[in-house]
Design a protein around this nucleic acid. Structure first.
Lengths: 149, 149
DNA sequence: TAAATTTGAAGAATTTTATTCTGATTTACG
DNA sequence: CGTAAATCAGAATAAAATTCTTCAAATTTA
């Protein structure tokens, strides 16, 4: 696998924070001309250092500003139950992240809702119909302190 | 505040997943010509529905594929201790997210390290020098199931 | 109901940017 | 040193973004 140098790292850090700079602007930032910067970015994309480019949306404006971390225990720990859980969770739009974790619980999900009422509805109607779930425990986010994506 | 319609929502959903489509491509997807699509996107940016555009990087390739959720209890619950904690945490690069939460702990942090050794070093040397922290509890991510950003 | 106004779209024109290409320079290495 | 492979700068080209003008539909107003 190709190795990356300091300029590549600079470009990655810049693009990670703002992917809308033009190559000319980026070139000035790293003291190069446009063509090598363009080629470096293409190489970083090709080699998988850059996975994709996305727009970050305002959760509050889209009625999704109420964040809850929801811990899940499965009913049983066999592969079928696990696969079934993953399958079901993938379809639920309120679940924005999900991790298989160590500790007392099996999964940790980040859930994004409009408000407490919406979250309650999510727990009853969406999670409530996921058969593989044994128990849940909710931790509510009071404020976001840091998020570097 | 301006209201958004169905086409705006379509554009937001598309750009949230991939911000590199050209306006011509987007126009085809939503059955409009380029100029109204261009104007809609500018309006969505101006009105804050789109906060920014970023590149998603491969954590594994950048030696940051080891994810841990770290729960924090503060020593005391006064404003000074809280502000001090927030200040310190903002400077630590391994802390990629941090939330003020309900429940037994005060904060939940998502930490990104190279491996367990790096995480151990982070806990001892970085968290270890944050005076405001009373106690911590680590939950290790075994695998990422879903992440919609 | 009819006229006036506003809104939003299409398509052409223009500007800017991305992308390719060429030649020169540097670097790695025997 | 000398050669080959990388890497760069700068010009040329292609493609995209952005602006502008015109038109049609919807909405408001009289």
């Amino acid at each position: 696998m190709e190795q990356i140098d300091d300029i590549d790292l600079q470009l990655l850090n810049i693009l990670h924070d703002n992917s809308k700079y033009t190559v000319k602007e980026l070139a000035k930032m790293v003291n190069l001309s446009a063509s090598p910067v363009f080629e470096r970015i293409k190489r970083l994309e090709k080699n998988g250092y850059i996975k994709k480019y996305i727009a970050l949306l305002d959760a509050e404006k889209l009625n999704r500003g109420f964040i809850v971390f929801c811990n899940i225990k499965l009913k049983q720990h066999d592969r079928n139950i696990g696969n079934q859980f993953v399958n079901d969770i993938m379809k639920i739009e309120e679940v924005v992240e999900c991790y298989n974790i160590s500790g007392d619980y099996d999964f940790l999900m980040k859930v994004s809702a409009k408000d407490m009422k919406h979250y309650q509805d999510f727990v009853f109607n969406k999670l409530g119909s996921v058969e593989s779930i044994g128990s849940t425990q909710s931790t509510f986010v009071m404020s976001e302190i840091k998020n570097t994506y």
